[in-house]
């Protein structure tokens, strides 16, 4: 299902990161970076909350607004702790979202739909993730440090927020495709790229079909966090299933870190991985005129440790948002 939006604009974005992202190649694009994983808080959960709150504060400053009609936010933690606590301090009507690492574009899709329908004038769409709070919840204690295979990805730390409204700006949210949940039987909890690639392929194909576009219509197509091996799997999948060649394509998980020097295995992941790259370097390139039409596809593995222990495979989803430079 693809929605076309008439008058929805991306007015401002804000990105806050942890130390690993700061040491990566995109550090100059981020609004704020913390040097320690605790972000001067007592626990990792509170550190993630702090980053999310900071990103909204910076966002409101950049958008020159005091608030918004609605706040849409999500993260990886049980009961959406960081989003709930941020909504508590913001005092803005709030929707908590969960689509794992696909939450960022899910938020933009829903926010744009609300604005397009005229129900709200503006919205703040946020996501956060934290490497240590995610490891603690989904895998082993952080200090355990068990080794991981090469296909594993590294949950990014940080928060990203976007301010969207009907007020025209340089970047327009042109359309968006709501993804379907896919499951091709992958049970390897480390190989999230393989889990998510079919969802990305399905959403991409559906988007191009609904909009009657060629794959080369976009100057750049990015996926959220497939990693280096997932990226190649998606390429092969598109070729085999739909006979399409993905050429002007990259993956945010690969762009966020310096894969040769940083200990991030196959690349970054987590809900914040996709918007940290999209809202920083990609928007920057769009504003400079290097890119005009970009399709951002946030990919999410709907991974539940409980269900994996019960021998079930991991479902996944992907939502796509098409951004255009306003001429």
């Amino acid at each position: 299902m693809t929605f076309k939006f008439k008058n929805v604009y991306l007015n401002a974005t804000a990105t806050v990161t942890g130390p690993y992202e700061k040491n990566g190649p995109l550090s100059k694009y981020f609004d704020k970076s913390f040097d320690n994983l605790y972000a001067n808080e007592k626990t990792f959960e509170l550190a993630e909350t702090k980053m999310l709150k900071d990103s909204v504060d910076i966002l409101l400053g950049k958008a020159n607004e005091k608030g918004a009609d609605v706040f849409l936010s999500g993260d990886l933690l049980n009961q959406l702790v960081p989003s709930n606590l941020t909504a508590l301090s913001l005092k803005i009507p709030y929707f908590g979202l969960y689509n794992a690492c696909a939450t960022s574009m899910e938020g933009l899709l829903l926010g744009s739909t609300l604005i397009d329908s005229g129900k709200v004038k503006n919205a703040i769409c946020s996501v956060s993730s934290h490497n240590c709070s995610a490891e603690k919840q989904f895998r082993y204690p952080n200090e355990y440090g068990g080794s991981k295979p090469k296909v594993a990805t590294f949950t990014a730390t940080g928060a990203a927020s976007a301010y969207i409204s009907k007020t025209p700006s340089q970047i327009r949210i042109e359309s968006g495709t709501v993804g379907k949940v896919m499951d091709l039987g992958i049970t390897d909890v480390y190989n999230m790229g393989a889990v998510m690639a079919p969802a990305a392929a399905d959403t991409l194909y559906q988007h191009l079909k609904d909009m009657k576009r060629d794959i080369n219509y976009y100057d750049l197509i990015v996926t959220g966090d497939l990693g280096i091996f997932g990226k190649q799997i998606l390429r092969d999948y598109m070729k085999e299933a739909y006979n399409m060649d993905l050429i002007k394509y990259n993956d945010c998980g690969i762009m966020l870190y310096n894969l040769n020097e940083q200990p991030v295995y196959a690349g970054g992941s987590g809900p914040v991985c996709c918007p940290l790259v999209s809202y920083s370097v990609i928007l920057d390139r769009m504003k400079k005129g290097e890119l005009e039409k970009v399709l951002i596809m946030s990919t999410g593995a709907l991974h539940s440790p409980t269900l994996v222990n019960q021998k079930l495979s991991i479902p996944s989803i992907c939502h796509a948002i098409s951004l255009e430079v306003v001429k």
């Binding site: 090469k150 296909v151 091709l184 039987g185 190989n191 393989a194 091996f229 799997i233 092969d236 085999e240």
Partner: peptide, 18 residues
């Protein structure tokens, strides 16, 4: 694409551990 075919596509692309 069925599950078996996809598993083959994945196996072809993932690196071997040392």
């Amino acid at each position: 694409m069925d599950k078996e075919k996809y598993q083959n596509l994945v196996d072809k692309n993932i690196p071997k551990e040392n």
